[in-house]
Amino acid sequence: MADTNDILKVENLKINFFTRKGKVYAVDDVSFSLKKGETLGLVGESGCGKTTTVLGLMKMIPPPGKITGGRILIKGEDIIPLSEDEMREKIRWEKISMVFQGAMNCLTPVYTIGKQMMETVQEHKEMEYLQAKKRIINYLNLVGLPEDIIRRYPHELSGGMKQRVVIATALFLEPEIVICDEPTTALDVVVQAQIINLIKRLKKKLGLSVIFITHDLATEAEVADRLLVMYAGKLVEIGTNEQIYGKRGPIHPYTEKLLKATPRLHEKVEELSFIPGTPPDLVDPPSGCRFHPRCLEVMEKCKKDIPSLIEVEPGHWIACWRNTND
């Protein structure tokens, strides 16, 4: 998978939470790469490790969690050995930034938008007040907000406007990688479409590389160039937009099921299919393939041996015994 275009490369990332119940294998041996100017979609059910993976990329895993193995290379530089101070000064928000899940509801209600954004600038860059203000206005315009927003308080803004403010703040220090964690989940459909369009426009204009997390495969089809499908802390399928949504469709039974459970507006179906059961407890993940207890095509081998990612066609990787003959 080595490529000089890779702006971000994750190798065998392992994140564990050390809880009283035991060691939780939240992210287990995850490897992927992000190319320059690409949107990488990360999908899976809740609790499968999507958010933990990207928090790992920011080195912001809350205790009792810890990165216990692997490498995270941003433009060839491993950030795992870096200290917290170095992360804050050099990496976070300057090279890689994040729109957190529900961030639009976490704006401080007692500060104006301008003041909150000013805080971010002053924390990171030495800049004259007026210059910083000009820059804030620039970025607000860039996300489609008028100038007078800087004097407004969060309660005066709609959900869509708050999400735009959060996106502007994430872009502000000119990062090359932006992670968006469920940026459209709490929004109405029309606003959702507007935010997705905004992210696409910004990506093109600023040459960003984006990691877009959602549990909705339909949303992902609109934004992602390539998809990572995660289940119970492991990547089960990697494929391009065409490979996953195209005629052949996904190959891993989990992705296949997930796609079938996604309602389609323009198709009348009598019965939507679903995946019975729930994702496993990651303190004691199932042996072999972690999906085997919920898989309808389970074989004896699946219960014993852990499948690894195998390339079945150029750029399309799956971890499944059923579909990889060896």
Binding site: V189, A218, A221
Partner: peptide, 20 residues
């Protein structure tokens, strides 16, 4: 507009801006 705004799992839309 509501119908146009709904995302659908169809390939090849990652580079186009959706008109709502």
């Amino acid at each position: 507009a509501l119908i146009a705004a709904v995302c659908e799992p169809i390939p090849g839309k990652s580079n186009t801006i959706k008109e709502v």
